[in-house]
C-alpha cells in the first residue's frame, strides 16, 4: 500500500482539501468574520508602523517602503506556512485528544496525514492579504528590477521562510510525543521573535540579533532576504553570505527536525483519552 505512488497521494490530498473546504463553507459568515478579525489583528503592527513613519519619515535610513517591504516577507511566508502546515501548528491538540492514534493505523505516512488533514483558510487569507497589500505597495518602489533571477530567488526565499517557521513548529510538536507541553513557551518565543523581526534586526542590541540568527532564525525569513533586494548599509554588520542562505537554512532545519520527528514517533505512547 505504501508504494501506491505519488498520484495516489495527490488524490488523497485533494480529497482531504475538499473536505476541509466543505467544513469551511458550512460556516461562511463565521469564517469570514474570523478572516476579517485576523486581518485586523495583523494590521495593528502595520498601522503603528505607519503612524510612526508618518511622523518621523524614516528610521536609521530605512524609509516607509523599505520597512514595509521587509515586513511583507513575514506575512507572505507565514500565510504559506499556515496554508500547508496548519496541521503541524495544531499538532499538540491532536496528541492530547488521542486523535493521533487514528492516524497511526492508516496506510499513509504520518507527516503526510498531519499536513493534509487540516487547512486553515481564515489564517491563510488574513495574513496573506496583509502581506500582498504590503508587497504590492512597496515591491515596485524600492528599486528592485524584477527579472527572472530575482523572481526565482524571491519565490525560493518565501518558501524557505515558510519551511523555517514550519520547522520551529514541528520541533515543538515533537515534544508532544513525550507529553511535554510547551505550547505556551513556543508561542511566546515564536510570536515575540516574529514581532521583533518586524523591524530591521540592526536596530536591536547584539544579543537579540544573535538570537534571531542562530536560535530562532527569523532573520532569514525577512531581514536577510530583504537585504538581498534592497541592500542597506546596515548589512555591513553581518556576513554577506547570510543573504543567500534562507533556502539552505530552511532545508537543513527541515531535515534535522524530520529526523527528530521519526525518533519521536517511535517513542510515542498514547495519551489514551480519545475525545471523539
Amino acid at each position: 500500500m505504501r508504494n501506491s505512488g505519488f498520484l495516489e497521494s495527490l488524490n488523497v490530498f485533494y480529497q482531504y482539501s475538499k473536505l476541509s473546504l466543505k467544513v469551511m463553507l458550512e460556516f461562511k459568515l463565521d469564517r469570514s468574520m474570523i478572516t476579517l478579525a485576523i486581518f485586523c489583528r495583523e494590521m495593528i503592527a502595520v498601522v503603528v508602523m505607519l503612524l510612526i513613519l508618518a511622523r518621523f519619515l524614516h528610521i536609521r535610513g530605512w524609509d516607509m517602503n523599505q520597512l514595509f517591504f521587509l515586513y511583507s516577507f513575514l506575512f507572505i511566508s507565514y500565510s504559506l506556512f499556515v496554508f500547508i502546515f496548519a496541521g503541524v501548528r495544531d499538532f499538540d491538540q491532536l496528541v492530547h485528544s488521542g486523535e493521533f492514534d487514528r492516524y497511526l493505523i492508516r496506510p499513509r505516512g504520518l507527516l503526510f496525514q498531519v499536513v493534509a488533514s487540516k487547512i486553515d483558510l481564515p489564517a491563510t487569507l488574513g495574513h496573506g492579504v496583509v502581506g500582498v497589500i504590503l508587497f504590492m505597495n512597496t515591491a515596485f518602489s524600492v528599486g528592485i528590477t524584477w527579472n527572472m533571477q530575482n523572481i526565482l530567488f524571491y519565490i525560493s526565499v518565501v518558501v524557505g521562510g515558510a519551511v523555517i517557521q514550519a520547522s520551529i513548529f514541528m520541533l515543538t510538536a515533537c515534544m508532544s510525543f513525550w507529553a511535554i507541553r510547551i505550547e505556551n513557551i513556543r508561542n511566546l518565543i515564536f510570536f515575540n521573535a516574529r514581532r521583533i523581526a518586524g523591524y530591521p534586526i540592526s536596530f536591536y542590541p547584539a544579543f537579540i540579533q544573535k538570537m534571531l540568527i542562530f536560535i530562532v532564525p527569523f532573520s532569514f525569513v525577512n531581514y536577510f532576504p530583504a537585504q538581498f533586494f534592497i541592500r542597506k548599509e546596515d548589512m555591513n554588520l553581518f556576513w554577506d553570505g547570510f543573504m543567500y542562505m534562507t533556502p539552505v537554512v530552511g532545508v537543513v532545519m527541515f531535515v534535522v527536525v524530520s529526523l527528530f520527528w521519526r525518533f519521536g514517533v517511535r517513542s510515542y505512547s498514547s495519551s489514551g483519552n480519545a475525545l471523539y
Binding site: D30, M33, I34, L36, A37, I38, C40, R41, M43
Partner: peptide, 9 residues
C-alpha cells in the same frame, strides 16, 4: 473570537 479580536485591534 472575531468580535473580541477586532475590538482589541
Amino acid at each position: 473570537f472575531s468580535l473580541v479580536t477586532i475590538k482589541d485591534a
